[in-house]
Amino acid sequence: MQPLTPKDVGKVTEQVREPRIVIIDGNVMERSLSEYGYTKNWLAGEITKQGARNFSDVFCAQIDSMGNVYMDLYNDTLKMPQVKQKLLVAANIKQLQANLVDFSLQTENENAKDMYNGYAKQMEKLLDKMSGYLKE
Rank of each mutant, 00 (worst) to 15 (best):
D64R: 12
P3Q: 00
N111F: 07
Y119D: 12
N27W: 04
G51W: 05
L96P: 00
V28H: 01
T39A: 07
Q62E: 15
Y70A: 14
V101L: 15
L96N: 06
Y70D: 13
W42A: 02
F103W: 10
Q106D: 14
E35Y: 05
F103S: 13
P81W: 04
M29I: 08
V22C: 10
L96D: 08
K49T: 13
L105F: 10
L126H: 04
K40N: 01
E18D: 11
Y36N: 09
I63M: 13
Q82F: 14
M1S: 14
G26W: 06
Q106Y: 08
Q95Y: 00
S32M: 00
Y38K: 02
K121V: 13
W42M: 06
Q82H: 14
Y74T: 01
T48S: 11
I21P: 04
S34N: 09
Y74R: 10
K86Q: 15
G37V: 10
M115K: 11
S104A: 15
N41W: 00
A52L: 05
N117S: 12
T5P: 09
L33M: 01
E110Q: 15
N75T: 05
V16H: 07
G26C: 08
Q82E: 15
Y38A: 01
E124C: 03
V83S: 15
F55I: 00
K11G: 01
T107P: 11
Y116L: 02
R17T: 12
V69C: 01
K113S: 07
E124V: 01
D114C: 11
G45D: 04
G37D: 07
S65R: 09
E110H: 06
E136C: 07
T13W: 00
V9A: 07
V69H: 08
P6R: 06
N54Q: 11
Q50W: 08
N99W: 00
L126D: 01
P19N: 03
A120I: 11
S32T: 07
N75M: 09
K94W: 02
S32D: 08
R20S: 10
G132W: 04
L33Q: 05
G51P: 05
E108A: 13
N75A: 02
Q2C: 08
D57W: 05
S104P: 05
K7I: 05
T39L: 04
K121S: 15
D72G: 04
Y119M: 11
L127T: 06
K11W: 04
P3C: 09
I21G: 12
K94T: 01
L4F: 01
N109L: 08
L105Q: 15
N75E: 11
L87D: 07
M115Q: 12
S131I: 02
V16G: 06
K79Y: 10
Y36W: 04
P81F: 00
W42S: 10
V9G: 01
A91V: 08
T39F: 01
A91E: 15
G67Y: 07
E136P: 05
I63D: 10
K113G: 06
K125D: 11
E35V: 00
Q15C: 02
L88D: 13
A91D: 13
G51S: 10
N75H: 08
I21E: 13
A112V: 02
Y119L: 06
V58Y: 03
L105G: 14
